[in-house]
Amino acid sequence: MNGHSPLADKRILVVEDEYFIARDLERALRAAEAIVIGPVATLEEGLDLAETQALDAAVLDVNLAGERAFEIADRLSARHVPWTFLTGYDEWALPVAYRSAPIVAKPFQADRFIRAIGALMPEKGRA
């Protein structure tokens, strides 16, 4: 580990159905030295990776081609993997159970997005 970035060598799942947004997320994460899992664009692919991959965190688009990513969020939570929604929706538009979830608003700014992902993970107090 080189430690330049708080996300260095962290495995981050990206579930986003809009190609250009997914590419921008991937580019921002790679620039922060993260390992990108995905990106994938469907609920089914997201669920598969959420269940089978070792992950440090995840970013989930709420609306995946008309399907909602809530099941992926639940699966990640059950595995104690922190996640954030990436959405154009306001918090109040989400089901009550998800209104306290972290949200990165679309359109996103790369630096804010990277800080939000970093904030999901516990600080490492030891070397």
Rank of each mutant, 00 (worst) to 15 (best):
N2F: 13
N2C: 10
N2L: 12
N2Y: 12
G3S: 07
H4M: 14
H4A: 14
S5R: 10
P6N: 06
L7I: 02
L7A: 00
A8I: 04
A8M: 07
D9W: 05
I12R: 00
L13N: 06
V14A: 03
V14W: 00
E16Q: 11
D17G: 08
E18H: 15
Y19Q: 12
I21V: 14
A22M: 09
R23N: 09
L25H: 01
E26T: 02
R27F: 00
R27D: 03
R27N: 01
L29H: 03
R30N: 12
A32N: 04
E33G: 01
E33R: 10
I35A: 06
V36S: 02
V36D: 02
P39C: 05
V40Q: 02
V40P: 12
A41Y: 04
A41D: 09
T42S: 11
T42Q: 06
L43W: 04
E44K: 12
E45T: 02
G46R: 05
L47Q: 08
L47I: 05
L47H: 04
L49F: 03
A50F: 07
E51V: 14
E51H: 13
E51P: 14
Q53W: 03
Q53G: 03
L55M: 06
L55C: 01
D56G: 03
A58Q: 07
V59M: 04
V59Q: 00
V59R: 01
D61C: 08
D61P: 13
D61S: 03
N63Q: 13
L64C: 07
G66I: 03
G66P: 09
G66F: 08
E67P: 04
R68G: 02
A69P: 03
A69V: 09
F70D: 06
E71F: 02
E71R: 08
I72M: 05
I72K: 04
A73N: 02
A73R: 05
A73W: 05
A73D: 04
R75F: 01
L76E: 02
L76G: 08
S77C: 05
R79D: 08
H80Q: 10
H80F: 09
V81A: 07
T84A: 12
T84Y: 00
F85G: 09
L86T: 09
L86S: 10
T87N: 05
T87H: 06
T87C: 06
G88A: 15
G88C: 12
Y89E: 11
D90C: 10
E91K: 15
E91A: 15
W92Q: 14
W92C: 14
A93P: 08
L94V: 04
L94F: 04
P95G: 11
A97W: 04
A97R: 13
R99H: 09
R99I: 04
S100N: 15
A101G: 10
P102H: 10
I103R: 03
I103G: 05
A105L: 11
K106E: 06
P107G: 01
F108V: 02
Q109P: 08
A110E: 07
A110L: 10
D111I: 14
D111N: 14
F113V: 05
I114V: 15
R115H: 09
I117P: 06
I117S: 05
G118Y: 00
A119T: 11
L120K: 02
M121S: 03
E123D: 15
E123A: 14
E123N: 11
K124R: 15
G125H: 14
R126D: 13
A127N: 11
A127S: 14
